[in-house]
């Protein structure tokens, strides 16, 4: 399929997040809890406009840092939903956003 021209593409925001917990947490559990929290807070309709994508190749399980792509218009709503994460995979944990950017390239401290 042909790519959309840049002018027709939706603007994205890339959120670099950090998981704060006592134990090291693996990617699948992080994904599950982020989806749970976002679905709970925004609902199916809200989440469809946020259109999030959690990037597997950018998750660093030793530093507990990862990247989520969301639609720029719903950045605030999505960010608020991250505040509702209180535990991940039976460990007490919370998630903070460290940096927000329009491109992955300008996010700092990633492995790529």
């Amino acid at each position: 399929m042909k790519h959309l021209p840049p002018t027709l593409r939706e603007d994205q925001r890339y959120l670099k997040f950090k998981v704060h917990s006592e134990e090291e947490i693996q990617f699948p559990e992080v994904v599950e809890s982020i989806w749970d929290a976002a679905l709970g807070f925004l609902g199916e309709k809200g989440l469809s406009s946020a259109d999030p994508w959690i990037m597997k190749n950018l998750y660093d399980s030793s530093k507990q840092i990862g990247v989520i792509k969301v639609n720029s218009k719903t950045e605030d709503d999505f960010r608020a939903s991250l505040a509702f994460i209180d535990s991940i995979d039976r460990y007490k944990a919370f998630v903070t956003v460290e940096q927000v950017s329009g491109t992955i390239k300008s996010l700092e401290g990633l492995n790529n």
């Binding site: 704060h20 709503d77 960010r79 608020a80 991250l82 505040a83 007490k92 919370f94 903070t96 956003v97």
Partner: peptide, 18 residues
């Protein structure tokens, strides 16, 4: 009351904004 109950300031700001 405990560490895991903390949240980032910008997340709370985003909640009020939303």
């Amino acid at each position: 009351k405990e560490r895991h109950q903390l949240r980032g300031p910008r997340e709370l700001k985003a909640l009020i904004d939303s």
